[in-house]
Amino acid sequence: MNRAIHDIMKSAEGRYLTADEGKKVIENARQYEHLLAIARTVEQREGDIVRQCIERVFQKFPKFHAERPNAYEKAERDITMVLRYAALAMVNRDPELLREKVLYWLRTILMAMEFGEVTKYTYETLQDCVAKALPPADAEELNKYVKLAVEVLA
């Protein structure tokens, strides 16, 4: 459930919603249509966003690519996963969804792999690729969540 709606419902136990709370619920519910449209665009452009991101990362860290078997496929899998869950979190306006379902878990894996600065650069680049692929306002919406990947994973 949308995080703001969830919080309003949770705080309103044993009483009716105030007019202001009711208005916020409606406003949040109305945003779904717009946010779903952004997510649809992301879905359509996912291949380009992810490919451009990987190409830039491999250009910046050529050894990383060369030294690891199936590096492209693994990068594609991980970046796609973060992008998809970021889009889900955006639709729900729920940053915790992204942190809990992907980022904390992925952080443990990436730390064990000792990817270090590659991780930070990858998800900063993903933000940039999103900014290039979507209209500015839409990119800003999605990048609020992609930015969490940089914060948590790096």
Binding site: G47, E73, K74, E76, R77, D78, T80, M81, R84, Y85, E96, L97, E100, K101, V102, Y104, W105, L106
Partner: peptide
């Protein structure tokens, strides 16, 4: 893995996410 296999087998996140577990 390429785009088509990603479609067939979407990458799965944390199985133990509290909200779903």
């Amino acid at each position: 893995m390429n785009g088509s296999s990603l479609a067939a087998h979407p990458p799965a996140g944390n199985f133990f996410a509290a909200t779903d577990y």
